[in-house]
Amino acid sequence: MAEIQDKIREEAKKALESGEVGVVIGWGAGSVPFKTTPVFIDKPQDADKLVWNPACTNNLAVYLTRWARDGKVGIVAKPCDIRSIVTLIREKQVKRENVFIIGLGCGGVVDTGLMEAGDVRMREITSLQWDGDDLMVTTEAGAVKVPAAQALREQCKVCHDRSPAISDVSVGDAVAPSEDLKIEIPGLSEDRQKYWQEQFAKCIRCYACRQVCPACYCETCFCDRIEPKWTAKKATTDEAWMFHATRAMHLVGRCIGCGECERVCPVGIPAVELARELNAVAKERYDFEPGDPEAEKPLLGAYKENDVDPAHHSE
C-alpha cells in the first residue's frame, strides 16, 4: 500500500513538473484517520499530500466535468472511477485528451458505517491499512483486524473490474475480480412497491446522491427546472419517488455502480439499486456495459433492428 502511494505521488509530480497537466485530482488525508478528502494538487512539491488507503472512497470523476473542460487534468482513479471516466468520455462530457489517468488496481474500499456498527471506537482510530484480505485498524489501544466481509462497501464486494480499464499510467498490480457475491438488501425482495415507498419516505431531498454522482452531469437537473415542474421541491414520498425513479432512468447505461449515492445518503436509501438492476438488464438484453471502453455509443443513443420488442412483452 505504501509503495503504491509513493508511486502515485511520483507520477503526479512528474505530470505536474513536465507541465502535462495543470492539476492532479486525488485523495488527501482526511480530517480524521478513517476518512480521506479530495485534493487538487497544482504544485509538484505538493504531490506528497496525495494518499492511498482503504478510505479512498470518493469517486473523483465527479470533478472532471468542471475541471477538465478547458485544460488537461490528472486524476488518480480506482477502476470504478475509471469506468465513470469512460462514460463521461463516451457521452462527450470530457475529452480523452483532457484527462491524464493515474489508474490503480483496487481490492475495495471500506464502509466506515459498518466499522462503527462493529466494536471499533472511531475516536481512537489512528490508521487504516489492508493486511492481505483483512482490514487492519490501528487504534490508540492497539491493532484490530476486521475481516474484509465486514469492512468492505457492498459495491466492492461484488466488483468485477478491479483493474483499470483505461489509464495513462497504471500503478500497482492487477487485482483479481471478486467472487460473485450478491448484494442482499433486506426487505427488497418482498413487496417492492411498499419497500420503495418506505425508502423514499425517508428522503430529505438534499440531493447528495445526485451531486456526488459523476453520471449526473446535467447543467440543470430536471428537478431544478421551473418549467415544466417535473418534481416539486417538497420532501414528500411521491415527489421523492418521482425524483429517484427518474434519476434511475437517467442512469441506465451511465451508472457504473460505484455506490457513491448510497454511501452519502444521510438516511440510508439504497439509491444505486434501481440503476444497478436496470444495468443488469441492459447487459443481458443489449450487451451493454457503461464502463466498457469498447462501447462507442450511449445505450439509449443507439438501437438495433432486432432489439427486444416491448410491445410483445406486455401481451
Partner: peptide, 21 residues
C-alpha cells in the same frame, strides 16, 4: 471540493432556511 449538495444544512439542527412554493 464542495459538490453543492444540501446535506450539511438539511441535517444541521440550526439551519432553518426554507423555500415557499
Amino acid at each position: 471540493k464542495c459538490i453543492a449538495c444540501g446535506m450539511c444544512s438539511f441535517m444541521c439542527p440550526s439551519c432553518s432556511c426554507f423555500d415557499i412554493q
